[in-house]
Design a protein around this nucleic acid. Structure first.
Lengths: 208, 208
DNA sequence: GTCTATACTGAGATAGAC
DNA sequence: GTCTATCTCAGTATAGAC
């Protein structure tokens, strides 16, 4: 039962990390639910952080491939022309919706990972290739923005996305039926579109 | 030296929480830098979480008062008319800029608190009163939005704000001189304004 | 190669002496 | 109010059974 142990650990850990967060989940809780020995984690993965790394690799891989595929197709359809903001956002965010339907815990985990910010090296390793494609694509969609304003808007996008993957608004109850993650993504794309299309520079009254 | 001990603990803990995060900062690290005994924390605060709670209360209090004062003044100037999105955002976000100049670690800590999401009860306790004023004010600024779309946009705003308080974009180095937090806030207000002003509903091509 | 048992260090928390 | 000693549980490491 060699593969069985490893697989059970991956599935259990992913679920618990997504539900409770990475720090809040102890290895002893994971092994208890998976029904394996504590040392099995260190045998198969080496450490708690490497366990997380393998979980991300397993699920983020397909999502990132789909992102790149959507971007490829959109760019092919556009010929050499720059894509619209909406198309870039769609290629980036839509695969999350697909993933959420079959794997909701993973999406919450991804949100946490981005938001917690601590495990910075892990994020960078798995999303570097995707960002390398999407940052230039988005840059071409809003060429009028200054480099600084553009980078900040990308930053805001990441923040909104991470928070949205983590959960729903909590000041009021919003229906959270299974499968309506796509709806959430549509709201997000509209909002971010508006943000990226906002006029640049000194248009805000900050008189104080 | 009773008050001295408590004060040193509060200041040291705030600095370390902001620099390293809440979970990553051990009580033993705090007491070592503050030069007090481990049990002093539990005597003065009761637990690590209550220590954090008191830190937030101390620094978030003035920020929230300033937020409410700015909102009061803006509403008084407007007579009975709804405020603009920009004015509401300004009243909500600008006090963070003031706080950042004299207390940068606190702002990073606030960002982490919002983003980590775990310490949910703490956030709710300290920001409930502020949200109770700002949610209706913003609602009046965008009355055409459906309730659902409105709540999601508030959610996106919180995410972008939390991520922005935590740090600067990291795919490229952005100048982070002291005192230019206000610049960051201006970028954020512009972006969020665009998001809130975005047209509602089925305007996104999600053909798949 | 795979898993079990056990021990080590450091975390937060608590009781009780002073 | 403060400090020492101690408790439980965390992540980690390793020796050895199968």
């Amino acid at each position: 039962m060699t593969e069985n142990t490893k697989e059970r650990l991956l599935e259990t850990a992913q679920r618990l990390f997504g539900q409770q967060g990475y720090d809040a989940t102890s290895l002893r809780h994971i092994i208890a639910e998976a029904g394996v020995n504590l040392a099995a984690i260190h045998y198969h993965f080496g450490s708690k952080e490497e366990l997380l790394d393998e979980i991300i690799q397993r699920s983020a891989g397909p999502v990132n491939e789909q992102r790149l595929a959507l971007l490829d197709r959109a760019e092919a359809e556009a010929g050499g022309c720059p894509l619209s903001v909406e198309k870039v956002l769609h290629a980036f965010l839509w695969p999350m919706s697909t993933a959420a339907d079959e794997n909701p815990e993973f999406v919450r985990l991804m949100g946490r990972i981005h938001a917690e910010g601590m495990l910075h090296t892990i994020v960078q390793r798995h999303f570097q290739a995707v960002l390398a494609r999407f940052v230039p694509a988005m840059r071409k969609a809003v060429p009028h923005l200054s480099p600084e304003e553009f980078l900040w808007r990308m930053h805001f996008m990441i923040g909104a996305m991470a928070h949205t993957m983590c959960g729903a608004p909590d000041f009021t109850r919003v229906t959270e039926a299974p499968g309506d993650f796509s709806r959430r993504i549509e709201f997000l794309i509209r909002f971010l579109s508006g943000g990226f299309h906002a006029p640049e520079g000194a248009g805000v009254e900050v008189k104080e």
